[in-house]
């Protein structure tokens, strides 16, 4: 219990629950089982999208190709099932493999060239989306296997079936970082590249692994989303960029690497999804929705930051995790001890 309270996202979760309870008293529909299902369904997809970005943030890199991979995987699933007549299981497996390969490609290019993931994935993401549009001429595949539709839209009362794969992914990623040697070395490399390299950890392997897993997670998110929309369109993923960063960052992933709170992602996804839902339920002036969203994201980040301060107050600070706006290996600067201020 104590541990849960000390996690960075605890205040955020508390604030959301309180706001949710207040909302459901003032507008009774907010607490209705269909509305909770709606929030959970969207949150589940957001969570997996967020995990995909978190993988690369953990090694102090970033991926702008999450949406591009999702676009390509979406139309691959549609094409394999509808045009090539593969059984749905094989079609999903094939598409997930494709996502993995796309991520692997990003990782290999970044590791080989030591370029920033930002620019490499900007280019590859554009290329992936380009392939998806090229293959389909922007016409969606509409013959969606019933298993995907059931997964995407099925529910037991308020419980969306999508929550199951999302929680499974969250647990798998969390466990991977905690117990697998490769997971720990990812965090070590992300936290302090030079020190990790000196201690014999392969920076290249860490980056390639992070991007490959990120590609796989983006593919999983894409496959989950096909059932929600019931249509496999190359436009899927076009507006995932902000979500992919907002979820892990609100969830407490620092941009300087070395941290990967998977459960934080899930909580942040619920927060974002609930914000979107509440704005519609409360019938907020449509022109104000976008602005309110931005301000609320900001409020959520500040709340997360307060949580972090509370946490660092009770526990010995590992290091100042928010180097002012630095990215990538600049993290090594803030990890440097000594150099007192004059």
């Amino acid at each position: 219990m104590n541990r849960v309270l000390r996690t960075q996202w605890a205040p955020l979760l508390a604030a959301t629950i309180i706001a949710g309870v207040v909302l459901s008293f003032s507008t009774k529909q907010f607490g209705s089982s269909f509305n909770v299902y709606t929030i959970l369904q969207t949150a589940s997809v957001y969570a997996v999208i967020g995990l995909s970005q978190m993988m690369v943030l953990a090694v102090a890199d970033m991926s702008l190709a999450v949406g591009g991979i999702a676009s390509l995987v979406t139309i691959a699933t549609g094409n394999l099932y509808q045009v090539q007549h593969w059984p749905i299981g094989a079609a999903i497996a094939g598409s997930l493999a494709l996502g993995l390969v796309c991520g692997l490609l990003n990782g290999v290019i970044i590791a080989m060239t030591k370029l920033s993931g930002f620019i490499v994935t900007l280019a590859t993401g554009t290329a992936f989306t380009g392939i998806a549009y090229g293959i389909t001429s922007s016409i969606p595949y509409s013959n969606i296997a019933s298993v995907l539709t059931t997964l995407g839209q099925g529910r037991a009362a308020f419980f969306s079936y999508l929550v199951l794969p999302a929680i499974a992914m969250t647990l798998a990623v969390g466990a991977g970082f905690r117990w697998l040697p490769i997971g720990r070395s990812l965090l070590a490399v992300g936290g302090n590249r030079d020190a990790a390299v000196l201690s014999g950890l392969s920076q290249k392997r860490a980056i390639v692994t992070a991007h490959a897993v990120s590609g796989l997670l983006a593919a999983i998110a894409a496959v989950l989303y096909i059932g929600v929309l019931q249509s496999a369109t190359p436009a899927t993923g076009s507006d995932w960029l902000i979500i992919s960063f907002a979820v892990p960052i609100i969830g407490g992933t620092a941009l300087v690497g070395g941290e990967a709170p998977a459960s934080g992602c899930f909580v942040a996804a619920i927060v974002l999804s609930a914000i979107n839902d509440a704005l519609i339920v409360l019938n907020v002036n449509t022109e104000a929705v976008q602005m309110a969203e931005g301000l609320l994201i900001f409020a959520a980040v500040i709340a997360g930051k307060l949580g972090q301060n509370v946490r660092t107050g009770t526990r010995r600070s590992r290091r100042p995790s928010t180097g002012p706006g630095r990215l990538g290996q600049i993290a090594q600067d803030s990890a440097t001890p000594g150099l007192g201020m004059p």
Binding site: Q29, F34, Y225, G237, N276, D277, V281, N283, T286
Partner: peptide
Amino acid sequence: VQVVSNIDSPSAAPPAVESLLASKGS
């Protein structure tokens, strides 16, 4: 009773429609 705009995209439309139905469906 309600206009929901700016949702003509594959990722914005489904959650918005569901939220609308959840609150005003009845």
